[in-house]
């Protein structure tokens, strides 16, 4: 600090009626782009997104070691595995199929669960609030950015798989044993619908992770907690003795997107799944906002 000087000038030339400093407007604080860049600079963001690109490549390479013994007799949808190399669309579908149940859950939980909790653990959260970034705005921007990154991960995964799958296996119709094969154009549309539904289902994870992120200061707790609860729900969903209660589990409709592969498209479970996911997400986010706008920041 040696030799430092501070100009004794007042910077409060144009003070607003609200008493804010010149240039400060609550609705301008923490712009989306600023938060996007904050998150983009983080190693975990780069790694997660990078892995989304890498995974299809790894799968593609793995398929090159085809041993020839087909042992994919896992029900009607096991054909997704055997058809994986029949074209770019099928390859993408396979990649989504293997990632949907866990990988994407972890990635979404990472983006949404880490966002507030990590700021709290670094201590930077209190400086953001002292800017002051209004609490609701802080949450809204953080949520939007987290959701944007989650969507980006989904798109990167599917996009990479589609590009390299098409380059390697060609632009072929989408095939499965559950329905007639779909022409590439129609198949692409179905694929987009699958991605859309997956995005909706993952809103539950996003909601849960975000709520935990607001409640706890430990980023690991928020991410891990959301994934653990998701797994718990999946396990309970396997127990048929629970009967009708299972329909209320957030994971109950998580595989309903497979219905999009049949002809005609089975949308009944998709609609129910969407209702369930949106209800849960709204509840979790509502709680998160309610909690965060009232809590004492002690980190």
């Amino acid at each position: 600090m040696a030799g430092s000087t501070v100009e004794p000038t007042r910077s409060a030339a144009g003070v607003a009626p609200s008493g804010a400093a010149a240039g400060y407007r609550p609705s301008k604080t923490l712009p989306f782009v600023a938060e996007f860049r904050r998150q983009a600079s983080r190693r975990r963001t780069q790694l997660a997104l990078g892995f989304m690109v890498l995974l299809p490549l790894i799968i593609l390479i793995a398929f090159q070691f085809e041993s020839g013994d087909d042992d994919n007799g896992r029900g009607e949808f096991g054909s997704l595995v055997s058809f994986a190399t029949s074209g770019g669309l099928n390859f993408t579908l396979f990649t989504i199929f293997v990632s949907a149940s866990f990988l994407l859950v972890v990635v979404v939980a990472l983006f949404c669960g880490d966002t507030v909790a990590s700021e709290a653990s670094w201590g930077s959260l209190r400086y953001l609030l002292a800017v002051p970034v209004p609490r609701a705005r802080l949450l809204a921007v953080k949520l939007l950015v987290a959701l944007t990154y989650s969507a980006l991960a989904l798109v990167l995964l599917a996009g990479t798989a589609l590009v390299i799958g098409t380059l390697r296996y060609g632009w072929s119709p989408l095939r499965s044993t559950v329905a007639a094969q779909l022409e590439p154009g129609e198949g692409l549309l179905r694929l987009l619908m699958v991605l859309g539904y997956l995005a909706v289902v993952l809103l539950v994870v996003a909601g849960l992770a975000f709520l935990l992120s607001v409640i706890t200061d430990a980023a690991l707790g928020a991410v891990g907690g959301a994934v653990l609860l998701w797994i718990l729900s999946s396990i309970l969903d396997q127990i048929t003795a629970l009967g009708a209660i299972r329909s209320f589990l957030p994971t109950h409709y998580s595989t309903a997107w497979l219905g999009l592969l049949s002809t005609p498209v089975q949308t009944d479970d998709l609609v129910r799944g969407a209702v369930s996911a949106i209800c849960y997400a709204t509840l979790f986010w509502g709680l998160a906002f309610w909690r965060f706008t009232r809590k004492d920041i002690t980190s």
Binding site: V15, A16, G19, G123, R126, L129, V131
Partner: peptide, 27 residues
């Protein structure tokens, strides 16, 4: 400056603060 201060008050923008140690993005 005469403005009643509540959490998130705009007048906070005229205050610079160091409270409870530094908080930075480590990366």
């Amino acid at each position: 400056f005469g403005h009643r201060l509540v959490p998130g008050s705009p007048v906070l923008s005229r205050i610079g603060a160091l409270v409870e140690g530094p908080g930075f993005l480590p990366h």
